[in-house]
Measured scan of single mutants.
Amino acid sequence: RERTTFTRSQLEELEALFAKTQYPDVYAREEVALKINLPESRVQVWFKNRRAKCRQ
């Protein structure tokens, strides 16, 4: 699998949801995934990595 490159608009959507909740449920992830045209699994991994970045 190729590394996913997020567009600015995708990142804005993801960061907006992250500001609301660092642990979105599957419904919130699927909703944003549809909105930004990415698989839910990519959204899930983005949140995992974003939380790790936050802890550093």
Rank of each mutant, 00 (worst) to 15 (best):
Arg1Phe: 15
Arg1Gln: 07
Arg1Gly: 09
Arg1Met: 10
Arg1Val: 05
Arg1Glu: 05
Glu2Asp: 07
Glu2Gly: 09
Glu2His: 06
Arg3Pro: 10
Arg3His: 11
Arg3Leu: 13
Arg3Gly: 12
Arg3Thr: 12
Thr4Ala: 12
Thr4Leu: 13
Thr4Val: 13
Thr5Glu: 12
Thr5Trp: 06
Thr5Pro: 05
Thr5Arg: 10
Thr5Tyr: 15
Thr5Ala: 10
Thr5Gln: 08
Phe6Leu: 12
Phe6Gln: 04
Phe6Met: 10
Phe6Ile: 06
Thr7Pro: 02
Thr7Phe: 03
Arg8Tyr: 11
Arg8Phe: 12
Arg8Ala: 12
Arg8Leu: 10
Ser9Gly: 10
Ser9Gln: 15
Ser9Asp: 14
Ser9Met: 12
Ser9Arg: 11
Ser9Pro: 10
Ser9Glu: 07
Ser9Cys: 10
Gln10Cys: 02
Gln10Leu: 01
Gln10His: 04
Gln10Met: 06
Leu11Asp: 10
Leu11Trp: 05
Leu11Met: 09
Leu11Phe: 05
Leu11Tyr: 06
Leu11Cys: 02
Glu12Asp: 15
Glu12Phe: 11
Glu12Tyr: 04
Glu12Thr: 13
Glu12Cys: 08
Glu12Asn: 07
Glu13Gln: 08
Glu13Lys: 05
Glu13Asp: 05
Glu13Ala: 13
Leu14Gly: 01
Leu14Phe: 02
Leu14Asp: 00
Leu14Thr: 00
Leu14Met: 06
Glu15Asp: 05
Glu15Trp: 02
Glu15Ala: 03
Glu15Gln: 03
Glu15Ser: 03
Ala16Cys: 08
Ala16Arg: 13
Leu17Gln: 04
Leu17Tyr: 02
Leu17Gly: 01
Leu17Phe: 04
Leu17Ser: 03
Leu17Met: 07
Leu17Asp: 01
Ala19Ser: 11
Ala19Cys: 08
Ala19Lys: 08
Ala19Glu: 10
Lys20Trp: 03
Lys20Pro: 01
Lys20His: 12
Thr21Asn: 12
Thr21Gln: 11
Thr21Lys: 06
Thr21Ser: 07
Gln22Ile: 07
Gln22Ser: 08
Gln22Val: 07
Gln22Pro: 09
Tyr23Ser: 08
Tyr23Asp: 14
Pro24Ala: 02
Pro24Phe: 00
Pro24Lys: 01
Pro24Gln: 00
Pro24Gly: 00
Asp25Asn: 08
Asp25Met: 02
Asp25Trp: 00
Val26Thr: 11
Val26Lys: 14
Val26Leu: 15
Val26Ile: 13
Val26Arg: 15
Val26Met: 09
Tyr27Ser: 15
Tyr27Asp: 15
Tyr27Pro: 14
Ala28His: 11
Ala28Phe: 03
Ala28Gln: 10
Ala28Asp: 07
Arg29Val: 14
Arg29Asp: 00
Arg29Leu: 10
Arg29Cys: 09
Arg29Ala: 06
Arg29Glu: 02
Glu31Phe: 03
Glu31Met: 14
Glu31Tyr: 05
Glu31Trp: 04
Glu31Lys: 15
Glu31Gly: 07
Val32Ala: 10
Val32Ile: 15
Val32Ser: 02
Ala33Trp: 02
Ala33Gly: 13
Ala33Cys: 05
Ala33Leu: 00
Ala33His: 00
Ala33Gln: 01
Leu34Trp: 06
Leu34Ile: 11
Leu34Cys: 11
Leu34Phe: 13
Leu34Lys: 14
Lys35Ile: 02
Lys35Leu: 05
Lys35Pro: 00
Lys35Tyr: 01
Lys35Trp: 01
Lys35Glu: 01
Lys35Phe: 00
Ile36Leu: 10
Ile36Trp: 09
Ile36Arg: 01
Ile36Ser: 05
Ile36Lys: 00
Asn37Gln: 06
Asn37Pro: 00
Asn37Met: 06
Leu38Asp: 01
Leu38Phe: 06
Leu38Met: 13
Leu38Tyr: 04
Leu38Ile: 05
Pro39Ile: 06
Pro39Phe: 03
Glu40Val: 15
Glu40Asp: 07
Glu40Gly: 05
Glu40Cys: 12
Ser41Asp: 14
Ser41Ile: 08
Ser41Arg: 11
Ser41Pro: 12
Val43Leu: 04
Gln44Ile: 08
Gln44Phe: 09
Gln44Trp: 07
Gln44Ser: 12
Gln44Val: 13
Val45Leu: 10
Val45Arg: 05
Trp46Met: 01
Trp46Val: 01
Trp46Lys: 00
Trp46Thr: 01
Trp46His: 00
Trp46Pro: 00
Phe47Leu: 07
Phe47Pro: 02
Phe47Gly: 01
Phe47Val: 04
Lys48Phe: 03
Lys48Asp: 14
Lys48His: 08
Lys48Tyr: 09
Lys48Ser: 12
Lys48Gln: 09
Lys48Asn: 11
Lys48Cys: 10
Lys48Trp: 04
Lys48Arg: 11
Lys48Ala: 13
Asn49Ser: 08
Asn49Asp: 11
Asn49Pro: 00
Asn49Trp: 05
Arg50Glu: 14
Arg50Met: 11
Arg50Pro: 02
Arg50Thr: 04
Arg50Ala: 09
Arg50Lys: 10
Arg50Cys: 03
Arg51Pro: 03
Arg51Asn: 05
Arg51Ile: 04
Arg51Leu: 06
Arg51Met: 03
Ala52Val: 09
Ala52Arg: 11
Ala52His: 10
Ala52Ser: 08
Ala52Pro: 01
Ala52Lys: 10
Ala52Asp: 15
Lys53Ala: 10
Lys53Asp: 15
Lys53Tyr: 07
Lys53Thr: 11
Lys53His: 04
Lys53Gly: 14
Lys53Phe: 12
Lys53Glu: 12
Cys54Leu: 13
Cys54Pro: 12
Cys54Ser: 15
Cys54Met: 09
Cys54Lys: 12
Cys54Tyr: 13
Cys54Trp: 12
Arg55Leu: 12
Arg55Thr: 12
Arg55His: 07
Arg55Asn: 15
Arg55Asp: 09
Gln56Asp: 15
Gln56Ser: 12
Gln56Ile: 04
Gln56Tyr: 05
Gln56Asn: 14
